[in-house]
Design a protein around this nucleic acid. Sequence first.
DNA 1: TACCGGCCTCAACCGCTGGTCGAGGGTTGA
DNA 2: TCAACCCTCGACCAGCGGTTGAGGCCGGTA
Lengths: 221, 221
Amino acid sequence: MGGRGIGEVLQLLQAEFADVTISKIRFLESEGLVTPARTASGYRKFSAADLERLRYVLTAQRDQYLPLKVIKEHLGAIDRGLRPAAAGPPVAPSSLPQTPGQPVADDFGAAGTELRLTRDELLRAAGVTAGLLGELEAHGLVVASGNHYGGDAIVIAQVAAELAAYGIEPRHLRAFRTAADREVGLIEQVTGPRRTEQTGELAALTVRLHTALVRSRLPRP
Amino acid sequence: MGGRGIGEVLQLLQAEFADVTISKIRFLESEGLVTPARTASGYRKFSAADLERLRYVLTAQRDQYLPLKVIKEHLGAIDRGLRPAAAGPPVAPSSLPQTPGQPVADDFGAAGTELRLTRDELLRAAGVTAGLLGELEAHGLVVASGNHYGGDAIVIAQVAAELAAYGIEPRHLRAFRTAADREVGLIEQVTGPRRTEQTGELAALTVRLHTALVRSRLPRP
DNA sequence: TACCGGCCTCAACCGCTGGTCGAGGGTTGA
DNA sequence: TCAACCCTCGACCAGCGGTTGAGGCCGGTA
């Protein structure tokens, strides 16, 4: 019951993961992905839970190509009880474009400094007419904060322009606005009105859900 | 309709992907991920399809952390009319619950053979309990057609499980279902009830709109 | 005509990730 | 006491995903 030595752990894992080595296990510890106990003399002792954790890490690396940083966040989330501990290995996400994949904070997070565009800059960047933008604002799809617009406004305007080519006009898009509002409302019920670590994670999840639902309801090919 | 220059493409993409640069786009070409046409004098000309491809690449990178090598394989699979398989290069060991194949596709367009899962397969693939699935069905989020489920059901179930960890339960998700239904309804008003070329294009657009709207309404970081 | 911004190629360079390797030394148990 | 095992620490490394800059060609315009 004292746990296993690192050599023994290596044996166990090598059956499943060909490229694991002792130095790699030590490296993973140094990166904070496992924290085995130590004997009085400093030897690592791995519990069954530590082994599970290692398996999780190696699986996520091999099958999903996740960077260690991200795997570490996932493990952290599990530790904080955000996910049933019984849950198996991480699962491959859908590979849709436009779909945020893993529940990781900075999917929807502040990757860089947020754009701040004037109205003219927005019009030029999105390549739309002032008329279209006016309509979008009238229906609450694009909102200026102060006298500037964020980067998402570009995407919204571009997409609206493309949809207009199909005969779908801004007024048909009001439902999207309310759906988005409700979605954000739900997220804020959990995280509170300030932005937290979880905000981005949750947004990624709900958007993924939305996408999958739309797909599933589309006429079958 | 001659396609866009690289500078214009940059503008379009930067709205969505903050860290794209000209040199990155050229790099992606050098790696064989896009192959824009060229003018007589050697200038790159990007078609709409090239743009879609770039979006796919950038999304996969940002949201799923996939290495370019893998993204390239996926694109290749799409080109050959297949759906990209999500699992990695070498061998899948027996320890993992085997996902029958991923519910993935390039965009909403490509017709391939749709997954057909039995209830048990779905439960194993998504790693959720029968109880959760039952709830999801009760609220209309997952629907069996006949006695099988589509690949999207896996994603829906997985996401629902993650949301449950935040205290968000299936009954809180009904609004997502109606929003998705409305969205599909709108699409079908344009394309008719049968699936056409446009169906996928429109779905990609509306989902993009939805995502941008949610992003824009989230509390600022 | 000259100019200037946009685009081209190619090669060199770079920072980060994810480790490996080896020296030098303690621990364990037969 | 010896072999096998384990420890730390610092140096090193390869590959990925680009960036940078030199040198030069387009193409609109004044």
